[in-house]
């Protein structure tokens, strides 16, 4: 890629993003790619005066990633989308569809992952129940 890419860790992510916002950057979007069976690669694209800047986060599928939607409201749709398609959890989403933005309740999760496809009945297990408990309170509304 021609532009500058900066690697970030999950802990430092929100801080870095907030810094970029102060500098006057605009969130373009997030791109998620599956690297292997347990890792995802998330690129955060930012733009200022037609120049791009990227943050790269390598996220394990099992762990949740802090949401940047409290900083950039515009991130809510794309984070929900990644949640739908890659099964990654984002913590602290301003509007959390809980994986139903695109998919129906009964649909298989993670349709965009090549390496693993969690089946529907697996989702019903205790892990899913735990997921539901720790969800954002806003989620009840939708």
């Amino acid at each position: 890629m021609r532009e500058e890419i900066m690697a970030v860790s999950a802990e430092a992510l929100v801080g870095e993003v907030a810094k970029l916002k102060v500098l006057g950057y605009r969130l373009v979007t997030l791109s998620c790619t599956e690297l292997d069976a347990s890792n995802l690669d998330i690129l955060y694209h930012f733009d200022k005066d037609l120049g791009l800047k990227h943050l790269r986060l390598t996220a394990p599928k099992a762990a949740a990633v802090p949401s940047i939607s409290p900083v950039y409201f515009a991130a809510l749709l794309v984070e929900n989308e990644i949640q739908d398609f890659f099964g990654l959890r984002f913590e602290g989403l301003v509007v959390d569809y809980r994986g139903t933005l695109y998919l129906e309740e009964e649909a298989l999760k993670t349709p965009y992952c090549r390496f693993s496809l969690r089946s529907a009945d697996q989702r019903e297990g205790p892990a899913a129940a735990l997921d539901a408990e720790t969800n954002h309170p806003n989620a009840e509304k939708f």
Binding site: V28, T29, T33, A74, L77, V78
Partner: peptide, 29 residues
């Protein structure tokens, strides 16, 4: 509006990832 493509290939005939960010997606918020 502005359209963004993120493309990733690994030397194979098929690409690893084609990510499309369409303008309406950005205009819904």
């Amino acid at each position: 509006g502005e359209l963004l493509y993120y493309l990733k290939g690994s030397g194979q005939k098929t690409l690893d990832r084609v990510r499309i960010r369409t303008p309406t997606f950005a205009n819904i918020p």
